[in-house]
Design a protein around this nucleic acid. Structure first.
Lengths: 233, 233
DNA sequence: CGTTGAATTGAACACCATCAACGAATGTGG
DNA sequence: CCACATTCGTTGATGGTGTTCAATTCAACG
């Protein structure tokens, strides 16, 4: 992964610090919890492979997906300061994770300020994504929401190197999409269908292809920007 | 401010580091921009006094308020990694800010890892608030949204020590509320009115009092949790 | 071949947006 | 001091977007 231009280079010393910080790997099956919503996790993770997502549920079961997670994303910083109030993380595909013990987070900051800075970088980037999702849920109509989400996920997957001939793996069903953009399942279906019939995108057996990115960008009022390389912990 | 139990104690050395990090104060009038939405700010801030809020606008003018800022909040970390895409910050009252030059952020992390850790703490807490707002905009109905927002702002103000005899300063008009919870101005008004007539809360000339916190908590499915002391940069 | 979960579609309705109008409070200039 | 403009809160009427309910299709799988 580190070879990818999407990630910042890292010194040998930092790499060693990351190595000593980590505490093994973990594999989670599709549909299983990486972090239970009910209790704060004693671990942090870096996602190595697969798709996951963060979510919250209201007491009557309504669920909101907060953000999606791709390889390179750091999981669990928000919980460092949880006070009980937390969110769940669920694997959407089989997922492999690098495990870090939470109580080593401060020692890591202390001994490797650069890595602490990088973690802040990642946390800030994550918040910006939630910001965007909040704009979507609060101020966009159904068509705009779907267009925005499709472009968002497609771009991120492509950047994470998951594109193959224009297709990216898309392991989400319509309930996931509905929960991410704040619509009902039925209306999500109808909106998705309409965009598909307009020829803007295409699904095939868990893969997604964008046929008219400009149209989707314009519909969603959501345009790509150049991205800097991302730190990888 | 540091005397308040809401904030974590800080060592003399850290205090000196904060002092050397800072770069003066700034006062912004109510309704003026602290950070322009269009361009990334070369400065970071700690809010000393007053209310402010972060927001984003779509190209046709629809606005979404992302989160509210109170004394002690750290402003601008998200932008450290902006890539152009950013958000605005506007003062809701007269506001005084402590100014930090952005290019000293990394040196601060480097020389004072503890302060770096604290900044991450604040960034993570901020993201959790945006998470909550996203659940609101995505999955709550109008009544629940208003109830949740009122309790949220009231609690935060109280915690920041802004309560006087059960009243807290509330410098927002109904357009602000509508933009925060993703409703139209008119429907926000009607919902607010209904809750007021039920005797759940009361407004008076820019101040807010909660008359029935339990009812509002239950309506919004949004319950208070014990909070740990917050770092203050 | 029956079962299950997901996608799809139609119909009825509710919630919320939009439009329009008015009142109260405040400020401004003549 | 009054005429006028401006901003904000309020309310009613109307309609649309999206929800809810219900049923059907379809693919996958035992």
């Amino acid at each position: 992964m580190r070879a990818s231009p999407a990630f910042t280079p890292v010194s040998v010393e930092e790499l060693l610090a990351i190595q000593s910080f980590r505490h093994g790997e973990r594999v989670v099956e599709a549909g299983r919890a990486v972090i239970e919503e009910s209790r704060a996790s004693p671990q942090l993770f870096t996602l190595y492979s697969g798709w996951a997502f963060r979510f919250k549920t209201l007491s009557d079961g309504r669920r909101q997906i907060l953000s999606f997670l791709l390889p390179g994303d750091f999981i669990g910083v928000q919980d460092e300061f949880a006070d009980g109030q937390t969110h769940g993380v669920e694997a959407a595909t089989v997922v492999t994770l690098c495990v870090f013990p939470r109580d080593k987070l401060w020692p890591l900051f202390n001994s490797q300020p650069r890595l602490g800075y990088d973690i802040t970088w990642l946390a800030a980037r994550e918040e910006k994504m939630v910001d965007d999702n909040l704009v979507t849920a609060g101020r966009r109509n159904a068509t705009e929401r779907v267009a925005m989400l499709l472009m968002h996920l497609y771009r991120r997957a492509r950047r994470a190197g998951l594109e193959r001939d224009g297709w990216v793996e898309f392991p989400f069903n319509q309930q996931h999409i509905a929960d991410a953009i704040g619509l009902s399942l039925v209306h999500t279906n109808k909106t998705l269908r309409r965009l598909q019939q307009l020829g803007l995108h295409e699904f095939d057996n868990g893969w997604l292809r964008i046929l008219d990115p400009k149209a989707l960008e314009a519909l969603g009022d959501y345009f790509e920007r150049p991205l800097r390389p991302t730190p990888l912990i």
